[in-house]
């Protein structure tokens, strides 16, 4: 009897999640009347705005990941090594983007960095891109920080640091050659989550008026029928691809079984 309920709950859960996806995928294939076709996908992929916004968002995601890694890895490492008492406060700060809406953050940015401010980042395209990257990094902070912090917990960073120091290594060498390679799986997990967040983000990109993929999806959704469904399926595939990559990297990273 117990098994029956367990299977029942599992099947209900699967149907709850999968049925809308099946419906959406089915709809995305019905652009041509009466037959299944990939027309909606062809239209989306052939749209130059899709290529432009998708490329832009990928580049922004990569920049955000690099910035996020450079910011989070040394911070999490230093807090764990030298300032363990500050961990609860740092964790609290990294969780703030989950409770402060993106629209509040971006309005704050616009007020602080507009053309009449002391640092007029919104006055140029490069400046606005940088601002958007900071915004994305803020949104991804809870995921990136937690991933890296969990990775750091699995290794004895204090002893590894001292071992490296006794062999003559300075801080940069320790971070680049010892710490980063040993939390690579965690960093990549954070990176893929960051990638997924940046690709679908709408609010910040729209309010900073940048040609990102999120606003494009919204625009398409407001004006077309089948193409938004195709785009949503592609977005899901991309996100799941990222999650699959996290699993793959975790499995194949050399030395991953070791936790000194």
């Amino acid at each position: 009897m117990k098994k029956f309920w367990a299977w029942g709950a599992l099947i209900f859960g699967l149907l709850y999640f999968i049925l809308p996806l099946i419906g959406m995928t089915n709809f995305s294939l019905k652009m041509r009347r009466g037959v299944y076709s990939l027309d909606a996908y062809a239209v989306v992929l052939g749209d130059p705005r899709f290529q432009q916004t998708f490329t832009y968002s990928i580049l922004m995601a990569l920049a955000t990941i690099v910035f996020g890694v450079l910011l989070v890895v040394p911070t999490a490492y230093w807090v764990r090594l030298k300032l363990p008492g500050l961990r609860p406060y740092i964790e609290f700060v990294t969780l703030l983007p989950l409770v402060i809406p993106a629209i509040v953050i971006v309005f704050g940015y616009i007020r602080l960095y507009n053309t009449s401010s002391w640092l007029p980042l919104t006055g140029s395209i490069t400046g606005t891109n940088i601002l958007l990257m900071f915004g994305y990094a803020t949104l991804a902070l809870p995921y990136m920080y937690r991933s890296v912090d969990t990775g750091l917990r699995s290794i004895d960073i204090a002893t590894l640091t001292e071992a490296a120091q006794s062999l003559g290594a300075g801080w940069t060498t320790i971070l680049a050659k010892i710490i980063l390679p040993n939390v690579l799986v965690a960093v990549l997990s954070g990176a893929f989550l960051t990638f997924a967040i940046v690709i679908g983000e709408f609010t910040m990109a729209a309010l900073l008026n940048r040609p990102a993929f999120g606003p494009y999806m919204q625009l398409l959704g407001a004006n077309r029928a089948y193409e938004p469904a195709a785009l949503a399926v592609m977005s899901f595939a991309l996100t799941w691809g990222c999650l699959g990559l996290i699993q793959l990297v975790s499995r194949f990273q050399k030395g991953a079984q070791s936790a000194t």
């Binding site: 001292e162 071992a163 120091q165 006794s166 003559g168 050659k177 390679p181 040993n182 050399k254 030395g255």
Partner: peptide, 20 residues
């Protein structure tokens, strides 16, 4: 002198080999 400037070799109880 900082630890990395002392030219002292050290072996730890927990081995501390670099896992990567």
């Amino acid at each position: 002198l900082r630890p990395n400037q002392r030219n002292i070799g050290m072996v730890f109880q927990a081995y501390a080999l670099f896992p990567n």
